[in-house]
Design a protein around this nucleic acid. Structure first.
Lengths: 330, 330
DNA sequence: AGGAATATTGACAGCGCTGTCATTCGTCAA
DNA sequence: TTGACGAATGACAGCGCTGTCAATATTCCT
């Protein structure tokens, strides 16, 4: 930066201002500085900036998993939106553990981040407190809640699951069951939505379900489906916690010689691309994962850049049922 | 840090050392410092560290896509390995564009990263030069090459594809075709491996293929399969660029009433979890994506921590053919 | 016992930038 | 004409830590 300043015959602080608040520097100087920066290939040192301004350019993102398709999509939205800005996304993998999450919150906060995005609304009390006292904006994503820490972008898993289950009942299935893996808070809410729908139809109905805390996979979906049918042969539809399980259930049903749709209804959750391309196509609840990442980051950046007005502190992205052949009794 | 120093009656530099090079500080002092750090909840400021030491704790990772399953697995390996260390992974999304990659290399380098991991071996000349001159270790991942910039962890896509195609021929398929999407350098090498095998079997054979630069997806795999069969009805097997395409091809073949295996052989690439769980299970070439991330980062950290010996500058992770029903002619 | 080698600690300056406050200069209403 | 005011620029100090070199304490060897 000193070089640039020398080049144009100005002080370093003026160069600094030309880069960060161009409107504070006269037209001519600004241009000459821009030229010199380009010529010299000057790139500001983020560490020095962070130290001097007591605020880093890091957007901390806390998610429970990196591999999971759902979060991969959220991340894609995040990275797309952060690309081109002066900010950097920094991921923290909480591994579905609130204690790990709390540690990461502390570590992130020690960097004086520009903003924080955290998945879910079930932080530990200590995390919540830390985040509330943070002097940077915070966005919770994935879910809806009555008492956001700061901002919130998500949708109601419970409502979505309830709608999916109602769809099964509407289509004439009598005994839908719930298949769940990796029972995190969001999965539990989907399960609750399933129960809502079942009980609304028949308050005395028995809830048929099979859940596990193992990470979900296609193979596991098949295994759970087979076990569930062995225990409860009367079931004629399954609402799966997520699309991987649904795909696995469909494969298992096909192996068992069942006709997908007429003999067994299958519904997934998230509507990954594969669902509509499968044979037969699988009904699912579409969620707006990429958009969640984009919007969360947009809100965050708006606040960082000074928009104090939290006009829309909570954004409900909702969901959309996508009925397909797998729940068509024909 | 000054607080900690005061608490134990030592100088800040001693505290600094106790944190970074414990062996340089006497047992007793070290213990008291550890206690004080814990009590005061002291966390070092990474920006100040980076500025003073002229070296940040950032491991820059340049990949072409965040959503892609393949890179998601690599990332998972990376994040698993970096967790618990004092380093931070910072992702740069090159979007399959070497110019973007070059800009990102510059930006990353301006942060004085602890190390850099870049996907592929086809960097622009300028990127290559920058990376070679970088005063930090660099690992290229995903592929093999004769002239690594520094270290390399990957496998031969060409050999793997050749083996897969030979498998089709061995199984008795006469007219295998190649289906490819998102034709990046690695896809091109797989295509070359396909051609190698076909030509080795019959030097005068016509190469049947259908490729596109669109990002791949299950749906696209089905569409390409249908178009390919319309143009070349004689084909009796397809080697797909990746598993998504293979899955789509399988669904399309099923829609067309073909028996998977007897009527049409299908082989994918990467061996995502879904391949073995599909109905029927789909033959694929297993690649060690997560391991690639883990090992690349381990090597990098070893070098950062001072192991100068580049005993194994190149690690070949190889691959493994996983024959399944989809290439069983019965 | 004497000196060299080693282990342990500290003083000091400065990393590259920005926040704060001060200065200069031109403009404008009274 | 004059003082007030805003726009443009600069001086200075310091963000929190570490590299370097120096000083002191301790151990070891002859």
């Amino acid at each position: 930066m000193a070089d640039v300043a020398r080049e144009v015959g100005a002080s370093t602080i003026t160069v600094s201002r030309a880069l960060r608040r161009p409107e504070m520097v006269s037209e001519g100087l600004r241009q000459r500085i821009a030229v010199a920066v380009e010529e010299l290939g000057y790139l500001p040192d983020p560490a020095a900036r962070a130290l001097a301004s007591r605020r880093s350019n890091v957007i901390g993102v806390l998610i429970p998993s990196v591999t999971n398709n759902v979060f991969a999509d959220v991340l894609a939205g995040l990275y797309d939106t952060v690309g081109g800005t002066a900010y950097n996304v920094q991921l923290g993998n909480t591994r579905y553990d609130t204690q790990v999450e709390e540690d990461l919150v502390r570590i992130f906060l020690s960097q004086r981040p520009a903003g924080l995005i955290v998945a879910g609304v079930d932080q530990s009390p200590a995390s919540r407190r830390l985040l509330q006292q943070a002097e940077c904006p915070v966005v919770q994503i994935m879910e809806l809640a009555r008492d956001p820490i700061d901002m919130l972008v998500g949708f109601s898993h419970r409502d979505a699951a309830r709608a999916a289950t109602e769809h099964l009942l509407d289509r004439g299935y009598r005994v839908p069951a719930f298949i769940g893996a990796r029972m995190d808070p969001r999965s539990e809410r989907r399960r609750a939505g399933f129960c809502d729908a079942i009980r609304a139809a028949d308050p005395r109905a028995r809830i048929r379900e099979l859940t596990t805390n193992e990470p979900s996979s296609v193979r596991l979906g098949g295994a759970l489906f087979d076990r569930l049918r062995a225990d409860a042969p009367e079931i004629d539809a399954v609402f799966c916690n997520n699309d991987d399980l649904a795909l696995g259930a469909q494969f298992a049903a096909q192996r068992a010689g069942l006709r997908i749709g007429p003999d067994i209804g299958i519904c997934g959750f998230n509507d990954l691309e594969v669902m509509s391309a499968a044979h037969p196509a699988i009904t699912s609840v579409r969620t707006f994962r990429r958009e969640m990442g984009e919007i969360a980051l947009q809100r965050l950046l708006a606040r960082i850049e000074g928009a104090d007005d939290p006009s829309e502190a909570v954004v409900d992205l909702s969901w959309r049922l996508e009925p397909r052949s797998s729940t068509d009794r024909g």
